[in-house]
Amino acid sequence: MKNPQEILEILKAQFPNLEFQLDASLPVETFIIADAMAINKISNFLAENEELLFDSLMNLSGVDDANGTKVKDEEGNETINGGTLSVYYHLYSTKIGHKITVRVSTARENPEVESVENVWKTANWHEREAFDMFGIKFLNHSDLRRILMPYDWEAGYPLRKDYKNPEFYQGMKVTY
């Protein structure tokens, strides 16, 4: 069983030219911050290496950090410019029994993260949901389209903090 500090050391030894950080400042979970464009290589290594053996992805979730600047436009609607969107991966090893959390961040304007679908097949639907709710594009995903909202939903990505509801959808009034 390894704790997050040891896992960080192993990752740093394997990928010397990538940046990693360990964030243990906030309560309960410590997580490793990694690079969004290299997460595929890192995931492959985490799943195959004999000391780590992370063979199950428990959860993949998108988060809107809402750390940009809030701008009010002429109708009084608030939008957020700048800032980041993050994706959190919770990994677990069924054979050894240790856990780790990994976080990647990407810019809000054109969010792109590498897909980990070829490592853990369960990421297929989780990434589709993160795309549907936040608009994060996963590169090299086999079938990236909306999964929960209707396929012709034009009004944006619902779980972002500055999302506005449309008035009508196909002739039906959406608001109360």
Partner: peptide, 22 residues
Amino acid sequence: PPKGMVYSRVENPKGELGYFII
């Protein structure tokens, strides 16, 4: 609660139910 995040899971009759709260 203080600032932070947690992921905890329980054994639902259907499987593993996990809550990730920030």
